[in-house]
């Protein structure tokens, strides 16, 4: 693994932001244990944030710590006075009451201790259930993403194998040589589908638009589409189409194609 790339990926900043899941954080910890440079980087980020907090006064209020310490102090005192009271009374009673009373007290004490142990165990279990629930949610999300991807892939295969479809591969133009996309034009229904294979993310406020080109006519609007959804149904186009092309247009599309912004184009 290239440590430099890893450090520059922004993942460590997200870690300190609290944006990673428990599992992802543990993965970072494992790597940090193996590569000290990652641990040092994390420390630098934390200290940067801390200095920023000092400078802007954007810190938790000091009362938060004070109040927490006071609560703990009070708890401790309560337990101590509680215990000494218990001792006093039991001593008095031992003098006044017969052996069975002592036995009952011992039993009670044992039962209290047993309850405390059970209570602690219960709390641990609850903690575990919570962490398992978190993991389950995460898995469910992953399954959902995977099944969406599968749906997309299946739709694509269906279009590729449909014998009624004319398939047109549109290759990247000079302004975007690596781009490509497919058009499926159904001979029976004349419906046009686009398969977005590789188009760059459009700049803010812009959208891609598909055009059908017929000989001797200006390009005919075949619909606007989202660059990040793979298969989309667009308009119905009839007649003597010789080519399809995609241009980048203002959001919402335009009636006249901006030809110099042609990203991909393909002939039938």
């Amino acid at each position: 693994m290239n440590l430099k790339d890893y450090i520059e990926s922004g993942l460590l900043e997200s870690y300190m932001m609290g944006e990673l899941s428990d599992e992802e954080m543990k993965e970072v910890d494992r790597l940090a244990a193996r590569h000290p440079v990652i641990g040092q980087e994390l420390e630098k980020i934390r200290k940067g944030i801390l200095t920023y907090a000092e400078a802007t006064g954007n810190r938790p209020h000091p009362d938060v710590l004070r109040a927490a310490l006071k609560t703990l102090q009070d708890d401790q005192e309560d337990t101590q006075t509680g215990l000494s009271k218990l001792q006093d009374t039991s001593e008095n009673r031992i003098k006044r009451f017969p052996v069975w009373y002592v036995a009952a007290s011992v039993l009670l004490l044992v039962s209290i201790i047993f309850n405390l142990i059970l209570f602690r165990k219960l709390r641990e279990n609850r903690e575990e259930i919570r962490s398992l629930t978190n993991q389950r949610t995460l898995l469910a999300e992953q399954v959902e993403t995977a099944s969406l991807k599968l749906d997309d892939a299946e739709t694509r295969i269906a279009h590729f194998t449909n014998e009624d479809n004319i398939r047109v591969r549109m290759e990247g133009s000079e302004i975007s040589p690596r781009s490509f996309a497919h058009v499926f034009w159904n001979k029976k229904t004349n419906a046009v589908f686009i398969s977005v294979d590789n188009l760059p993310e459009p700049p803010h406020g812009h959208q891609y638009q598909l055009w059908a080109i017929k000989p001797g006519q200006s390009p005919i609007d075949a619909g606007i589409f989202d660059y990040n959804e793979q298969i989309q149904k667009l308009k119905v186009i009839k007649g003597d189409v010789m080519a399809f092309a995609v241009t980048l247009e203002k959001e919402g599309g335009t009636p006249h194609a901006t030809v110099e912004k042609t990203y991909v184009k393909g002939f039938l």
Partner: peptide, 8 residues
């Protein structure tokens, strides 16, 4: 509190 307070 001093070292992790703001991030927490």
């Amino acid at each position: 509190f001093e070292n992790y307070g703001p991030v927490l």
